[in-house]
């Protein structure tokens, strides 16, 4: 269980608090106005920013002293998810072993992950030779290999068109099903939140609210969310 225990991150005028928990297998969309702290929330969970109060706990253990790479977390950023100088297969291999000394069995797993996301045979390409959608697939394939119990998505598909984005979301659901991971996905589109299926966290006014079932939330949004969505 991922527990945000009276979590606070403050920096200058900016302040974000969160106090809720989520379970393996949950799929949670994180929406809210830009600058509200959606990415900050993910960065604190991933370990790039330290809490200024409270703690992030996993199965009861405080993750504070744990380095980002050692946390039970895989994160996909908005961009730069692949190293451009390494091949796609090497980029995936890093998810298994940072020194890239892969055994034949591990190499087979890389190929298998590539095939799983529809990139079979493209392992020797450089990221620049992939389309935006293919790059997203490659990053998801690495998440599949790492199989960490928490998958954080910081708008990695924001630059894609609607059709490709829907395709990626389907793939995210597939990966989450296979790994049983808890998914936290930042988006600014309520349709993405619906497509993910599950719950939604609304971030606004310095607070990441506890997750609510997405359909319920969108059918009867609180005032701040109404303002963000621009509905009467």
């Amino acid at each position: 269980m991922l527990q945000l225990d009276h979590l606070t991150h403050a920096q200058g005028d900016f302040r974000l608090t969160a106090d809720w928990s989520a379970n393996p297998g949950d799929r949670i969309a994180v929406i809210g106005p830009s600058g509200a702290g959606k990415s900050t929330l993910l960065a604190v969970i991933a370990g790039f920013l330290a809490p200024t109060g409270g703690a992030v706990r996993w199965k009861g253990h405080d993750l504070g002293p744990v380095a980002p790479g050692q946390r039970p977390v895989t994160i996909l950023f908005q961009d730069q998810n692949l190293f451009p100088h390494l091949t796609v297969a090497q980029n995936l291999g890093l998810g298994l072993r940072p020194d890239l000394r892969l055994s034949p069995a591990e190499q087979a797993r890389v190929e298998e992950a590539l095939a799983r996301v529809g990139l079979a045979g493209l392992g020797q390409r450089k990221p620049a030779q992939l389309s935006g959608g293919q790059a997203g697939r490659a990053a998801l394939a690495r998440a599949l290999l790492r199989a960490r119990p928490v998958l954080l998505l910081d708008e990695p598909f924001a630059a894609l068109g609607p059709a490709l984005r829907a395709e990626m979301l389907a793939l995210v659901r597939e990966v989450a099903d296979q790994t049983g991971a808890l998914v936290l996905m930042v988006t600014h589109d309520p349709e993405d939140a619906r497509a993910l299926g599950g719950e939604t966290v609304f971030v606004g006014d310095g607070r990441a609210n506890p997750p609510v079932e997405t359909g319920t939330l969108l059918a009867n949004p609180p005032q701040a969310l109404q303002d963000y969505l621009g509905r009467k």
Binding site: G47, F48, P68, G69, I75, F77, Q80, L94
Partner: peptide, 10 residues
């Protein structure tokens, strides 16, 4: 690439 490297324990 700092964060990506860190997230992969590189």
């Amino acid at each position: 690439y700092g964060r990506l490297a860190e997230s992969l324990s590189l």
